[in-house]
Amino acid sequence: MNVAIVTGASSGIGQSAAIEIAKRGTGVILTYANNPAGGRETVAAIEKAGGTAVALPLDVGEAGTFTAFRDTVAAVLHDTWQRDTFDYLVNNAGLSLTSLIENTTEETFDRLMRVLLKGPYFLTQKLLPLMADGGAIVNTSSNSTASAGLEPGYSVYASMKGGLDVLTRYMAKEFSPRGIRVNAVSPGSTRTRIANDAFTQFPEVIPALAAKTALGRLGEPADIGPMIATLTSPESHWVTAQTIEVSGGYNL
């Protein structure tokens, strides 16, 4: 059985991706940060559908914990799947903070950098020795990196996601000798818990976002998860170094 690691899978896009990947017959190691109940919920959904999953705590903003996390992953692979390697990595865990450039503090900048760019970089580096040849990596980016239709306040968030898009291409180049494909998905506005569950707190912003979306509504996690699962699967064996927008035609 193939095995995937999906970070930030206690809710939202990560939860959807973990469930969709499991539906394709892949075992899942999923991570959570501040929402252990959500992690258990994702495991329960996968097990109810006949799959196998294990939830582990991980703060992708704390690179100093990655060695211990890798060791835990190795033990889980051995104990649960009798394997020494895994096949797919989804760097999904995220964080969203908004502020205008004139008001942005170094603390805000550094926190977003640690979670959105440094975290995926060094977590991938740390896990790479455990990854099987011929596998796949999917990074969750954002269409906030687009060249038009920008919203003030996302300069740091989008800059880090833009860095992740570039990192995706360099990973694809450097890991290609091992047959490891690397792609990114770029969601548009999607109803998740990110930014302190902003869409629940401020539902009044939804109609304007839906109006800017060609397909006429806000995105849902279930719109994004299947694309992530598809990019990990063998049917995407000839796709690498791509950032694929999954936004329902936002700002089209």
Rank of each mutant, 00 (worst) to 15 (best):
S176E: 09
V115R: 00
H237A: 12
E151V: 14
A75M: 12
S11M: 03
G51T: 07
G149C: 06
F86V: 04
F66I: 13
V6N: 09
T124A: 03
Q15I: 08
A44W: 09
S141A: 11
T31K: 00
T230M: 14
G134M: 11
A136H: 02
M171I: 05
T98P: 04
I46E: 02
I194W: 01
T98N: 07
T230V: 04
A37F: 08
A33W: 05
L100H: 10
L127M: 10
G39K: 02
T190I: 14
I244M: 07
G135I: 13
N35L: 01
S99K: 13
G94L: 04
G188R: 00
P120L: 00
L231R: 05
T108I: 15
V205C: 06
L95W: 12
T52G: 12
T67E: 15
P203Y: 02
I5G: 00
E102K: 13
L123V: 05
L128N: 07
A18Y: 01
Y88N: 08
V185G: 02
E107N: 08
L150N: 14
S99P: 03
R178I: 09
S147L: 14
A93F: 01
R169W: 00
A33Y: 06
T124V: 05
A208N: 14
E245M: 09
E106A: 14
P187W: 01
I194P: 02
G248R: 14
R24G: 09
E245N: 13
V6L: 10
P187V: 03
L116H: 02
T124R: 00
